[in-house]
Write a protein that binds this DNA or RNA. Structure first.
Length: 597
RNA sequence: GGUCUGGUAGCUCAGCUGGAUAGAGCAACGCCCUUCUAAGGCGUGGGUCAAGGGUUCGAAUCCCUUCCGGAUCACCA
């Protein structure tokens, strides 16, 4: 039970005893005391003044007296306006720190075999172009939220549904066939996904040229788009693919193979991975059966042309197509099928889709459809809907070449980390392997933190002209603090100082120090909230606050030169506890922290 | 047009389940390395919290209206 709850209970008692007012504990407002006032926690008194028939100051004083007498954890209080500021005894803080320091799993709930299972779908790339910054946000959020849910006691299965078929894939294939001259990743030196992406762009250019030619001949824009030879060929290729044409299938397998090899490298560098990968080419026919079933049950209906629809007007939505007139399936049909497959494969208690907010409508519909089809988990699926990454000029567009490439961006970040390290002379005593590792951690740390610190639901802006910072509220700032603490701890160890625990817990500490312990105690709540709200940003911002406070402490107090053994030991234990939270917390964001930098 | 969503410092963002004088970082300017890592610390300047109204002892936060962005409403995925 945390301190707020303990105090809340006593406050409720106080109000009842003093004024006869029944109050639920969770109705009592207890917040951290603002820095400019004395105290650790503050009770808001205004809600009780009516029952007390006294001034806020007088009421606060009476409640304060009661608390002081009935809870040994408190050392003093003061009342300012309607705010009762409580000071917690230093002994309590020291005992708390001692407990936390000895708890290797502090803030983390480890799942067991009996824990509920959460499946998290993320990444979900198309195999016709390389990953860009938008995908990076998706992957980082997906990976991080998986780590956070694990830390909240869930068994987690991370899954990826690869969109490996369709007309867009055929476009790249066709362009390669027509203009590629047999180019391969080996012959070109290009990463496979980039090579295929190149031909996607080639297709688009050639296609646009054909459209232009046709419109100049008098066709309308629409007609030109539909009758351009290239698009007709691509459509034929798709049909050939669906008919298992050996040549087309072979080309498809070859080019997708290149893309997967490229994706693997990108995923590995980003530090994300999957437990189970589904391929749309294997699942896209699933779901038709379910739609037929719904049709028979009368949940869906068939139009004269043979297409199948769901009428969602009673749910405040439109009508939705589920099968085309020719009987082929659409996106929604596939998602129904994929969902069914997954529930056949795993005992899923909760399904989470990490997909951009542009698909809010799709998932709203999917949830309703699954529910109508009788899946009891349909209603409870979670669409973890995140915002777009925008450039200062607006949206990124693949075809217009305004995308920020994932591989390029990671490489640039690592290179600027290298430059900064060299300028500062930080890594002069390290081996080349160590340097490589640190520079990678720092560069990627900066990128990941930059993305994860913002509220996932909101759109965010990325300006490629301004490099991502290494100072201030950044990943490297946090990593640096961790490295500094580790450095002090190494020195303490060399000097043979014992900081395995707190020998004594009865000596005075400063306000800054007790405040740091208070911050530490908030970590489990933050992890829990991050899980409930699906927000890695909560963890990022918490770690930043903790680290900022610690740096002030580090600047103002000396640790190893402190003469009092109790204080020296305490500061080491405090520092080690904070380093541990930094490491755990950053781990939940998928960010590594170096031992030195 | 319907639905959803956002508007906080020059820029990027916190704060939003109502509480004290709205916070950080970047950018600008100034100070601090003979002391545990200066990727650090301290300070200065910078705000009609889009606008107006309402509820309340109290509103950036809740409600309504308006203005300005973004997404979506495909027999694309």
């Amino acid at each position: 039970m945390n301190l707020e709850t303990i105090l809340g209970t006593v406050v409720a008692d106080a109000v009842k005893t003093l004024y006869g007012l029944e109050t639920a504990v969770n109705q009592i407002q207890i917040q951290k005391t603002k820095k400019e006032f004395e105290g650790d926690l503050t009770v808001v008194i205004f809600p009780f003044v009516k029952a007390a028939h006294k001034s806020p100051e007088q009421t606060g004083k009476e409640i304060g007296e009661y608390l002081l007498q009935n809870n040994p954890v408190l050392s003093s209080f003061n009342v300012i306006k309607g705010f009762l500021n409580l000071s917690i005894s230093q002994r309590y803080w020291l005992e708390t720190l001692k407990d936390i320091h000895s708890n290797k799993q502090f803030g983390i709930t480890v799942p067991t075999d009996q824990s509920d299972l959460m499946m998290i779908e993320y990444s979900s790339p198309n195999t016709n172009k390389p990953l860009h910054l938008g995908h990076v946000r998706n992957n980082l959020l997906g990976h991080s939220i998986a780590e956070i849910q694990k830390a909240n006691g869930w068994r987690v299965v991370k899954t990826n549904i690869v969109n490996d078929r369709g007309i867009h894939i055929c476009k790249s294939m066709l362009a390669w066939k027509l203009f590629g001259n047999g180019e391969t990743p080996e012959s070109s030196g290009l990463k496979g996904d980039h090579l295929v992406g190149k031909y996607y762009v080639v297709f688009d250019k050639a296609y646009k040229a054909e459209i232009k030619e046709l419109t100049e001949k008098g066709l309308s824009e629409d007609e030109a788009k539909k009758s351009a030879p290239l698009i007709l060929q691509a459509q034929q290729m798709l049909i050939a693919w669906e008919n298992n044409d050996p040549e087309v299938r072979h080309l498809w397998e070859t080019m997708n193979g290149w893309v997967y090899a490229g994706f693997d490298k990108t995923y590995k560098k980003l530090g994300v991975e999957f437990d189970k990968i589904y391929y749309e080419s294997q699942t896209y026919l699933e779901g038709k059966g379910k739609v037929e079933e719904g049709l028979n049950k009368g949940v869906f209906y068939r139009r004269e042309d043979g297409s199948v629809w769901a009428d969602l007007t009673h749910d405040g939505l439109d009508e939705k197509l589920l099968l085309r007139a020719d009987g082929t399936s659409v996106y929604m049909t596939q998602d129904i099928g994929t969902a069914k497959l997954r529930y056949d494969d795993y005992p899923i208690n909760k399904m989470v889709y990490v997909v951009g907010n542009e698909q809010n409508y799709h998932f709203q519909v999917l949830s309703i459809l699954l529910d109508k089809l009788g899946f009891d988990w349909g209603k409870s699926l979670v669409h973890f809907s995140y915002g777009m990454v925008e450039l200062p000029e607006g949206k990124m567009k693949s075809r217009e070449g305004t995308v920020v490439d994932a591989d390029d961006l990671m490489d640039e970040m690592i290179e600027s980390a290298r430059e900064t390290s060299q300028e500062l002379g930080k890594l002069d005593n390290c081996t080349p392997e160590e340097i490589e590792n640190i520079v990678r951690m720092v560069g990627l740390g900066a990128l990941k933190y930059f993305i994860l610190k913002v509220d996932p639901r909101k759109n965010m802006t990325f300006n490629p002209k301004e490099s991502i910072d290494f100072n201030g509220n950044t990943g490297p700032f946090i990593q640096y603090t961790h490295a500094r603490i580790k450095s002090v701890l190494r020195k303490a160890q060399e000097q043979g100082i014992d900081f395995s625990t707190l020998t004594d817990t009865q000596f005075p500490i400063s306000e800054k120090e007790s405040y740091l312990i208070q911050l530490i105690t908030e970590f489990p709540t933050v992890v829990q909230e991050a899980g409930e709200e699906f927000s890695p940003a909560l963890i990022a911002n918490y770690i930043y606050d903790l680290v900022k406070e610690y740096n002030q402490f580090y600047h103002d107090f000396s640790i190893l030169k402190e003469e009092s053994f109790n204080l020296k030991q305490f500061r080491l234990v405090l520092s080690e506890s904070i380093a541990s939270i930094i490491k755990t917390g950053m781990g939940l964001l998928g960010i590594e922290v170096p031992e030195r930098m």
